[in-house]
Amino acid sequence: MDWLSPSDFLAIPFNDWVNAFVKGWLVPNFRPFFRAIQWPVVQVLDGLDYVLNAVPMLLFTAILTTVAWRAAGRGVGIFTLASLFFIDLIGLWSETMTTLAMVVTAVLFCVIIGVPLGVAAARSDLFEKIQRPILDVMQTIPSFVYLVPIVMLFGVGMVPGIIATIIFALPPIVRLTNLGIRSVRADLTEAATSFGATSWQALVEVQFPLAIRTIMAGLNQTLMLALSMAVIVALIGGGGLGLTVFTGLGRLDVGNATAGGVGIVLLAIILDRISQAVGERKAVHTTSLAATLKSFFAPATRSEAGANHERAAPKGL
């Protein structure tokens, strides 16, 4: 005997509902709005892409190597130099620059959107409560799922790709901004207020500088997530290294796919090391990254961890 299941009696046309919502309501009513949103992204991306592709390879390599060296030490500097040469030698320079432009654009918008959201969440418990499930969904929903509505709303190409990347990479910076500001010792904020600081002054003078290390950890995660979208974005018309991998995949051209993949990995390592190092430097007198991440996974003890950070931090620059 067959077991009964509810679907024998009732079928919910969930997919139809979503279709009706997106196609019947969202797209026709909000298309101009979504098109307008694209505008700033287009400007930044075009500008960056133009600049990065116009700068001679050697000059760019020299600049990035210097930055890596100054920020993260000689090792990372040498690694950056070697990697960029390697990328150029395997013929992927311009793809790499395109991917870099995309990633930087996406991260820039993540910061512009995410930091204020994080600050707002830190200041209002209600806002945090509302925001948390939304961020959870953004982080867990497979990015393929929202590629379709994004294409419907924004069309195909680089910019929709970047918008998908922004959605995917936004949560860590919001969360860690929130966490960073919340774990600033309450008596320090109180001290600022007691000297007549407005809430903006307290944010700028005390909370933000003390939270910067945590925020930079969030930025680092956001950056990595954005890079990890490079290939997926190629599905909806994004260019760069992702496209190289994607076409390699389509043609079973393992050589090209691997070359693209290696390019992404090298870029990821360089950006990761530099952004981490910048975060550490910025926060010599605040919290350690390890402690921050630990407290991230143990929310109950985070204020305690926050209080202990200062002690553990290394001394002056």
């Binding site: 320090l188 000297f195 003078e205 003390l210 007198h285 605040t286």
Partner: peptide, 27 residues
């Protein structure tokens, strides 16, 4: 009116002089 705190509540990212001048900066 200004306040002095039990656990000092000095700003760890500011130097001693900057800490002392905090109220003035705010003003």
């Amino acid at each position: 009116v200004s306040m002095v705190f039990q656990h000092f509540a000095l700003f760890p990212h500011k130097t001693v002089a900057e800490n002392v001048a905090f109220g003035l900066k705010i003003k």
